[in-house]
Design a protein around this nucleic acid. Structure first.
Lengths: 167, 167
DNA sequence: TTGGAAAGTCAACAATACTGACGTAAATTG
DNA sequence: CAATTTACGTCAGTATTGTTGACTTTCCAA
């Protein structure tokens, strides 16, 4: 519209790349992520747990038997930070930590029945919101949504994401 | 609790709504938001500031003269939490807080020259990542990206978002 | 003039993250 | 086999961001 510095072209073939469009995308990410986390947050606030617990539960459910190190790579936090969360979840009998079979230094993490129950509850709240949004936007929009998100992700995580998409 | 929880159909016309697709979308949101915030986080770690300071700076820049109350509505935090951040930014001469003209109880917030400089730095890092992602995904995908995000956002914020999109 | 809204402050607390240091057990390497 | 590395756990200290609750000051409006 105005003197938007440099990222626009003379024509409008790249109009979606104006700084204004980018700023709108940035704010949409901010507000959407808040909506995205709000339902699980509400559920967890009755449990002494927070978002970190949710993330641990989510990825242990997605990768049963995952090692602590592999989980650390996915979550991108320090082992001390993850350990605090895991310790609680193990003590509360939501996660089962078993000594590795081939390498006894490793711990393989699994959800217990209670852990699975909480995961279902959290996941369903989040999936419900996503389902509504997907339905309202339509399959074509969903494809674009995913394509843009994949490109926002750090290259470090691309390997994980590739497996996520394909497998 | 059902095996496939009913979100799929016999055909594949709604295949994009399977629980697996929804879970993939959920993980994409998680990883993308981390990428989205990583560049500003790096910059801020040298400044004694965090993400809360970035958000305040961002929205004061977007709405020069915004009142504290209006900013609270956008950020969705308590005034005590926001006040701690604002106090630092005002003390460090990044934000200027002026007594309201029509209502002297209100404070109108503006970025100082220093604040504008930091905002440019943070914004450019974030816009750069978005620009790359948009470019890689293409305008059609960007439209879908935005449409899905808009539908993930809480209805409470939709009024703000509508103005964001149109204006 | 009095009630209430807006803003700011102080205190206490909780969740999540970080760094650094240390210990134990098990696997790997020389 | 001895030394080193790896995996995991833990303790201590600190920072950021968020919460409640209580309180004061300012000042508009009924």
């Amino acid at each position: 519209m105005q003197d938007n510095s440099g990222s626009d072209t003379i024509g409008d073939s790249l109009l979606f790349l104006t700084d204004d469009q980018l700023l709108q995308g940035i704010e949409l990410m901010f507000f959407a992520y808040r909506g995205f986390t709000s339902d699980p947050d509400k559920i967890l606030s009755n449990h002494t747990y927070g978002r970190a617990h949710h993330r641990a539960i989510h990825f242990v459910n997605r990768h049963p038997g995952i090692t602590v190190n592999a989980l650390l790579d996915i979550l991108g936090v320090t082992k001390q930070s993850l350990n605090r969360v895991l310790r609680q979840l193990i003590k509360d009998n939501l996660i089962d930590s078993r000594v590795g079979k081939s390498d006894r230094r490793e711990r393989n993490l699994f959800l217990t029945a209670d852990g699975t129950a909480l995961e279902r509850q959290l996941s369903e709240a989040q999936r419900s919101r996503m389902r509504t949004a997907y339905k309202a936007a339509g399959p074509n929009a969903v494809q674009g949504f995913r394509r843009v998100l994949e490109n926002i992700i750090d290259p470090n995580m691309q390997s994980y994401v590739k497996k996520l998409i394909s497998g």
